[in-house]
Each structure stands twice: as structure tokens, then as C-alpha cells.
């Protein structure tokens, strides 16, 4: 089962000593690298420690993670049925309202009615199991087999950013939906940048959102792309680029650790998928923050059918 590296093996052995409270991990990637294994690694670690976790993705649907996690020996489907995992789907409906609210044509209405899709969720604090399965009636293997419980689809956020902010509250409500335990839940968010740029939400609002989530979570992992155009800003940069760089660097300043995935500098190799760099974030520097420390390192990683291997340069990984 443990074919995935544990957070301790990534962040240093003393990471576990840190207080599990408001931790922030910033995971950056570039085009061509897949940070999904870091998600699986965090999920696996949470489940094996009996914790709760919310996975939010605005880039990929549940089956994507289900299939990928299965390859690495993690059964997300079963956890979805248990009480320790919530998946928030920010892809399927975010800009695709079947509601026909804007479509002039008569769209053959899918089983879900628009009214149940909107409105109901954001207001209710502890989310009762969503009654509507994500309405994918026809093809696709996905949601029909999915238990609707613990599977939340973000509603439409077409047009104004106000609608999108409402969807952020849905995510927050999902985190609060866990029954109170000693350990706070973890949250993993992917594709927040897409929400930000595609809806035009102000970057400060996104930051507030992350701050609010950190207050109620043990560890929060934010996955963002760090391609050069999105990081290096000049006077002529577009608002999209500046907002993205602003978000990324702001989070970098608050993070406990920054995990950067990039491609091998020397080109593509058969037995190396990319480079993982772990650096200490400012959040880890406070002396009073416990005995643990994130240890900086640069490792190669290789993702294959046999699992994910992380190894030092030159050690070959075999």
C-alpha cells in the first residue's frame, strides 16, 4: 500500500512533530509535470492516520483522481463512502450550467433541476448529503456509480465573481461539515488559479478564502502552477499574470514548506519523471512552532506503475 512517499519522507523526518494546525503547503508545478501524486501521498497519509480530508479540484473530475489513486494503491471510492473524505468537483458545473439560464435554446433538461443546484448548498452550513448525483445521465462511467454522498459539485459561476465567491463558501462549508474531532481536517485545493482568472475574483478575496480555510484546518495544501509567465512579472504584465504571481508569492511567504515540481533540466529521461524541490517556508521559522522543521532538499522523482519513488540525484533510485 505504501507505494507512495509519505509527507515525512518528502518534508523531513521531524515534520510530524509540528503542530497540526494551520499548516500551509504550497505545491507548485510546471506544464508537463503532474502533481497528482503529491495529492495521493497526502490523502494516503491522512487516511492512514485516521484524519479527514477534503479534496477540491477545478481542473479534474473525480474519476481522474480515482483512477490515478487506484494505480498507486489508494481506493478513493471507498473513502468517499466512509466519513473521512469529501470530494468537491469544481470542474463539471462551474461554467457549465445545464440550467439554461443563459442558453436560449431549450435544453433537454437533465434530471437535476437548476434550483436544487443553486442556492441550497451555500446557505446550509453542515452539508447534508447532496441529493443530486452529479447529473451525468448518459455516457461516462463516472457519477452514476458514484455515491452522491460526500461528492459535491460546485454550481455555476457564470458571469459575475459574486457567483464564484458563493462557490468558495461551498468549499468552506464542506470543510466544516466534518463532525468535530480532535484533529482538524485537511484540505487540498487544485486549480484555484483557474477560478480566480476565469471568474475575475479579486486575488485578495482568494487569499482571504485560504486564510479562512487555514483557520479551520490542520494542513492545507494549495497546488498552483509556477510556469515562468505566471511568476515573472514586469510593468507590462497582464492583470492575470500579476494576480497569479501575487497569489503564488503571497502564499509562498505564508507557507510552511514549498514543494516545487519541475522537469529535469537536462531533458526527458526514462527513469526520472521530474525534480522535486522542498524549501522551508517562512511559516516554519517561528521558534515557538514546535520541535519539527521542514528540511530542504532536492530530489528526483519517478512515477511508474510500481508507485512513486523519490531519490537523491545520482542514487539511481533502484
Amino acid at each position: 500500500m505504501s507505494r507512495l512517499p509519505t509527507p515525512n519522507s518528502i518534508l523531513g523526518p521531524s515534520y510530524a512533530l509540528l503542530p497540526l494546525e494551520s499548516q500551509l503547503l504550497l505545491v507548485t508545478s510546471v506544464l508537463g509535470t503532474s502533481p497528482a501524486w503529491v495529492i495521493y501521498s497526502l490523502l494516503n497519509d491522512t487516511f492512514s492516520n485516521g484524519g479527514d480530508v477534503v479534496l477540491v479540484s477545478c481542473l479534474n473530475e473525480f474519476t481522474y483522481f480515482r483512477d490515478g489513486a487506484k494505480r498507486h494503491g489508494l481506493d478513493l471510492q471507498s473513502h468517499l463512502k466512509k466519513d473521512d473524505f469529501i470530494f468537491v468537483d469544481g470542474l463539471s458545473k462551474l461554467f457549465l450550467s445545464d440550467a439554461g439560464s443563459h442558453g436560449p435554446q431549450s435544453i433537454p433538461s437533465p434530471p437535476t433541476t437548476p434550483s436544487s443546484l443553486r442556492g441550497a448548498i451555500p446557505t446550509r452550513a453542515p452539508i447534508s448529503p447532496r441529493q443530486q448525483a452529479p447529473s451525468i445521465p448518459a455516457p461516462g462511467k463516472a457519477p452514476s456509480s458514484l455515491d452522491p454522498i460526500r461528492y459535491i459539485t460546485l454550481g455555476a459561476a457564470v458571469g459575475t465573481s459574486a457567483a464564484a465567491i458563493k462557490q468558495l463558501d461551498v468549499i468552506k462549508a464542506a470543510v466544516q461539515a466534518f463532525p468535530a474531532k480532535t484533529a482538524r481536517p485537511r484540505v487540498i485545493i487544485e486549480g484555484l488559479d483557474i477560478i480566480m482568472s476565469a471568474t475575475g475574483i479579486d486575488v485578495a478575496r482568494i487569499e482571504d478564502f485560504i486564510y479562512e480555510l487555514r483557520e479551520i484546518t490542520s494542513t492545507m495544501a494549495v497546488l498552483l502552477p509556477a510556469d515562468p509567465p505566471l511568476v515573472h512579472t514586469t510593468a507590462s504584465s497582464t492583470p492575470l499574470e500579476i494576480s497569479h504571481a501575487n497569489l503564488l508569492v503571497s502564499l509562498g511567504h505564508a507557507a510552511d514548506a514549498i514543494l516545487s515540481l519541475r522537469l529535469l533540466d537536462t531533458g526527458v529521461a526514462k527513469d526520472v519523471s521530474g525534480v522535486l524541490r522542498v524549501t522551508r517556508g517562512a511559516g516554519n521559522l517561528w521558534r515557538g512552532a514546535g520541535a519539527g522543521a521542514v528540511e530542504e532538499k532536492e530530489l528526483l522523482y519517478h512515477e511508474a506503475d510500481a508507485g512513486v519513488k523519490i531519490f537523491a540525484r545520482g542514487s539511481g533510485g533502484h
Partner: peptide, 12 residues
Amino acid sequence: GTGIAVGGEGGG
């Protein structure tokens, strides 16, 4: 769901 690009042994 993974970064495995080309089957088994060749996974750049």
C-alpha cells in the same frame, strides 16, 4: 490521474 506518460518502464 498519474504522470506516467509512456507505459511501464518509460515514464518521462
